[in-house]
Design a protein around this nucleic acid. Structure first.
Lengths: 299, 299
DNA sequence: TATAGGCTATCTTGTTATGTGATCAAGAGG
DNA sequence: CCTCTTGATCACATAACAAGATAGCCTATA
């Protein structure tokens, strides 16, 4: 059974004529006859009344119901890939919690505004977990900190943060090793890559271990730092955006540690659904438009 | 896009291997490659990850959802015509009201018992209306009184009734013309073909008009006749079946008027859906088993 | 790193299926 | 009764397809 034959059958059902069907579907009458006949032979049932005016038999109408289902599914599938419509498609995005909280909202808002019919699904987790989910096909794309070492993946740097050391008192230089050994660091919960940066920083300064407190929100963290509870590490733009609310000061970190890039990762563009392709378009536009004034942090 | 290609795609999705898919679907690996490739070219999207282990891309999974719909519709359609199952099919039966009331119940019961998954729809009406609905394809089959004059239709005599004149008093011969002129006849409502027989009988006896009362039920009719309200015309078996309950007597009618055949009419058997074919089987069995002991009337 | 085994892509070939145009037969309408 | 339209059939050219062989790639294992 071929979709082409079913399409012709539906044409016959609607036009009541083999010739008209042939014209409508850009073929010749003998073709229509042949396709209908083949369908009939295949199913062992006469599908079309020929005596008198042409119309579907009871069996033909029964088949037409299924043909309708098959053809509409086919047309939807084709329009999903070829047409402009992304209706009914799904987009599963994976992102770090900090990215989700601080970077994604404007992007998701823009995308959902442009394509409200796409079923958006957002999953959060640490980078390692996200990469795993991507390779397993459980998400369509992810936002992760740092490059993906997996080959065959499309990578795109979308956000770039300059991390700074944050404290309640003005700093002119990095705290001493002794200070760092006894100090408390405030960080997002386990799995957050900014937390890894703190550990990297400590290692860079020759400190093997320090007290690290888990905090759940940016406000809590900034509040605690302002209260003199300890240090933290955050993007400079985030700190500057909140400096009017908290008595906090920041110090630039050594370049290799300060620089944190958030990458967008997905399979090769050739494999993208139209919805995913549109999402990347939206992502690039939004990312380009707020590169300099980014006022969020986390990752 | 071919259903065959989609079937192969689903195979690849499930087995994760072109070779395994080829074996499972009884073809060769190069064929699987070619079909998938053609699908990809058609949609302009890569559907299968080949690097490393084979698995569907995001686009491939999106297509797979539609493929699932198309293939299941296809399989259902095929099983409807080729398989033993009639699940999900519909059968629209048209019948005269008297047939519906008195002949159909055992048939419908037997059919529904054997094929409970068929969606049975029963429409009632006078013969002319039923024939019209049949030719318009609004019903799949009808039970009508008398032969159908339309050609190209399958006709089958299923019930044969011998009509008798029913009265509250024993009769040895047809009532006189004077008696008939003043008598009241009891009949089912307008459109019933038995009623036409009454008019035919009166014409046969040279009576152009008589009082005819419409009654809704057999019991009401028999009760009124027993009470001496007038005459009626019913199948002999019906009268005999109820003679122990009502004081009624019957008289044979002239042969051409007495004989009423109920026909089953449908399009040619070649056009039947399996459900309709099964219904005809059931009909024949039931009709054959109670030809002699039919205890109903109407039509 | 080298090698062996399994996997997919590609190419070739023979066969099948398909689309097309011409012609014939049957019905509908005037 | 004639004509026009319609569907069936046939023959032919072309396209599509399935199958087998082979080459290239990747993975796993030593």
């Amino acid at each position: 059974m071929q979709l082409k034959s079913l399409r012709l059958l539906m044409g016959v059902a609607e036009t009541g004529s083999f010739v008209a069907t042939a014209q409508r579907l850009h073929t010749v009458q003998s073709n229509v006859t042949a396709h209908i006949k083949k369908l009939e032979d295949e199913l062992g049932v006469q599908l079309v009344h020929r005596s008198g005016h042409v119309r579907l038999t009871t069996a033909g109408m029964a088949l037409a119901e299924y043909a309708e289902r098959m053809l509409s599914a086919h047309d939807e599938a084709v329009s999903l890939f070829k047409g402009d419509k992304v209706a009914g498609s799904r987009l599963r995005i994976g992102a770090m919690e900090t990215t989700t909280a601080l970077r994604l909202p404007p992007i998701l808002a823009a995308f959902h505004g442009a394509y409200p019919e796409v079923d958006l699904q957002l999953q959060t987790g640490p980078t390692a977990s996200l990469v795993e989910r991507l390779t397993e096909g459980l998400v369509d794309c992810v936002f992760v900190a740092g490059r993906l070492d997996h080959p065959h993946y499309h990578l795109e740097k979308v956000f770039s943060e300059e991390l700074v050391l944050v404290s309640s008192t003005p700093m002119l230089a990095m705290p001493s090793t002794e200070e760092l050994l006894t100090a408390t660091f405030l960080a997002f919960r386990q799995g957050c890559s900014y937390r890894q940066r703190i550990e990297l920083l400590l290692a860079y300064c020759g400190v093997s271990a320090a007290r690290i407190f888990d905090l759940g929100s940016l406000d809590a963290m900034l509040g605690c730092v302002a209260a003199g509870m300890g240090y933290t590490v955050l993007p400079r733009t985030t700190v500057e955006a909140h400096q009017h609310r908290f008595a906090i000061h920041c110090l630039a970190l050594p370049a290799p540690i300060a620089q944190v890039d958030t990458y967008f990762a997905a399979a090769q563009p050739a494999t993208w659904t139209p919805a995913l392709a549109r999402f990347v378009d939206t992502l690039r536009q939004v990312a380009a438009s707020d590169t300099r004034r980014s006022e969020s942090g986390g990752g």
